[in-house]
Amino acid sequence: MKYLLILITCSLLLITSLQAGQLASTVIEADLKASPSIKSKTLKILETDTPVNIVERQGGWYRVETAPPLQGWLKMLWLRYSLTGSEQGGFSLLTQGTGSVTVATGVRGLSEEELEKGQGDPFAINTLDRFIVSPEQARAFAKAEGLKQTQLPYVETK
């Protein structure tokens, strides 16, 4: 069980939580820290490919559990998640599914099948103006959750 799937059917609610119990493993030899800081005490040095169970995240750190029962903190980028299948569940209005097609790269391309399938509604693109949110509405939306703007330039890392 890669995800802990909590199904609460209480009135109309269906809540799926992916937060707890994500399995992962270390990609480098990593120091298991006592707190989410590089300066904190090292509890144990974990070999590359040590399996861990992610309990929570705080900033760039995961609190993990590993064998023998031991909890500590690892930097996010020291870990890769274990492979998972696709997630079930969904919106009541979700009618289409690509089933076998999982473009696992996410954030980019379409598959050949998708482009050739042709069951959509190309002209629907011009009916979307009612969803456009004004800058003022967007600012109010951000303010409601305490999102604060900061000035930050792009960074060249190469």
Binding site: A24, M76, L79, R80, Y81, S82, L83, T84, G85, S86, S100, V101, T102, V103, A104, T105, G106, V107, S111, E112, E113, E114
Partner: peptide, 14 residues
């Protein structure tokens, strides 16, 4: 991105 990295490669398109 960690989630993307963990998606199962289960199709030829992928």
């Amino acid at each position: 991105i960690q989630k993307i990295a963990s998606e199962k490669p289960d199709s030829t398109a992928w």
